[in-house]
Structure formats: structure tokens, C-alpha cells
Design a protein around this nucleic acid. Sequence first.
DNA 1: GGAAGTACACACTTCAAGGTGCGTAAGGCA
DNA 2: TGCCTTACGCACCTTGAAGTGTGTACTTCC
Lengths: 133, 133
Amino acid sequence: MATRTAAQRREAERVAYDAYLAACPSRQVLDRISDKWVSLVLVALDKGPQRYSDLSRKIAGVSQKMLTQTLRTLERDGLLTRTVTPAVPVRVDYALTPLGESLLPVMRAIKEWAESHIEEVWAAQRRYDKASA
Amino acid sequence: MATRTAAQRREAERVAYDAYLAACPSRQVLDRISDKWVSLVLVALDKGPQRYSDLSRKIAGVSQKMLTQTLRTLERDGLLTRTVTPAVPVRVDYALTPLGESLLPVMRAIKEWAESHIEEVWAAQRRYDKASA
DNA sequence: GGAAGTACACACTTCAAGGTGCGTAAGGCA
DNA sequence: TGCCTTACGCACCTTGAAGTGTGTACTTCC
């Protein structure tokens, strides 16, 4: 945000992207960040840079293919940086960019919502299934 | 939340759901709400109940199958209510439940993030593609 | 001189998400 | 009489997402 000039901000407002429109590019961005692995990866980078192996250990159940793919996409979208250290076995660190950090609170909120409301969702499901049985 | 007793809250804290764990049910909830259509539907219900046709018009590009499916799942999960009015052609209204409203701020934030940061994402993509070319 | 660890790439395959098209009920209208 | 609307259900089919398994480069350790 701080990297955006007032002119750029005005321009952005003028164009008025709207994710409700199918062809709007913001729809694509919304689609990309509306992803289980994206949110888990971003939140995992909350407390500073992490290595590839750290992430794959922390985010249980992710295949290395999906992790690599998710990381590449996030890097391309400017949400995180990839730093290769040519050590003995090569070492790769991933860290959030300012843009990634701007999305972090939202992602954290989603993850926390899921964790804290699961029982209410469960209760609702039981009620629904019972009623429609 | 108000529907939750202190005992239930304590229990929830004791169990400590963690979306990082693959088998944790909160992972499933996270997966379900990490969905383009879910966020668009919830935000569309921001300003009060909407009819099925309202939603399909507002959310451009959604197929009726996906819209119906999304609405059913959200109803089952207790995020919204479905009210059928047996009028001349049947009329169906969808409205947020308190649980759905608790998720609304997050969903709104996601949609707004996508709309307001798209140009930064684009710039990052151009930079990435140029560098790797 | 193998084995092991890191961070992948790539090919193959499967499975399910999602699009499309057709059918429906129940009246209102021309 | 027959067509219109609303809000779907259902079956079919395509396509793409994602899992699995194997290969690799480089060095160090045993």
C-alpha cells in the first residue's frame, strides 16, 4: 500500500474492479487466493521465513507437488520471495513480501474461523441431515 | 457465539483444532470456505436476503448447478437459511444466519483484497515472467 | 563406493469438479 | 391450448486438478 502513489490509487478507484463480474481480473485473483493450501502456506510464513522442508512438515498432508506448485504461484503473484542458498544440500527459504503480509491478517482470520466454528458447523450439519432424513 | 456456553467454549479450547493437521476436521471446514463461490455468495447476502435469481444475476458466470450446490452446502453448514414461499412461480429466499454473519467480515475482506491488489499482483507477474524468460 | 539429504522436475494416471442440456411442477396469461 | 417463469434435479461428459512414483545434482558421511 505504501508503495502505491496517490495517482495510482485514484486510477485503481476509477477502474473499479468488481469480482462479481466473471471477466473481471479480480475474479481470478479471488479464485487463486481462495485456496486451502494458499491460506495454510501464508499463515505458516507468519513468523518469519521458512524452508521448504519446514513448510512440508508444518502443513501436514500436502504433497510436494502441490506445495511446490503453490509456492511457485505465490512467488509469481508477488506474495512471497524464494531465496536459494547454494549450501551443501541446497537450501531454499520462503518469506512473505509486503504484499503477502497485507493478505496475512485475512488468511489468519479464515484459518481461525475454521478452527473456532467447527463445532457449530457440525451441529448445523447434524440438524440438516436429521431434518432431511 | 452467544449460543455457546462457557463449558462448550472451554471444551473447544481443550480440543484445540489445528488446520495444519491433515486429519483435523477444521481442515475440511477451511477447504469448504476457501472457495470462490462461497465468498461471492456470502458477500452477496451482505445487504439482506436475496432470491435465487438475484444471486445468479449478481454473481456473473456462475452456473445454476454450482450456485445450487454452493447454496445447499452453505445451508447444511448452517451459514445461511433457505426459505421457500409457495407463490405462483415458487420463490426462494436465502439469508445469512448469525454463523454466516460471523464469517462475512472475513469474506468481504478477501473479496476487497482481490479487487484492490490486482494491479500489484499483475506487476509482480510481469516481473516474474520477464525474469524467467 | 554406496547411502543419505534437499528441493525439486517430469511423466503418468486417476478422480472428481464442474459445464451442458433436458425435464419438471404449478399456476398465469394470451 | 400452449407457452412463460422460477428454482431447481438429474444424467452425461469433458477437462483439469491433484496423487504417485521415479529421476537428478551435489556433496558429505560412513
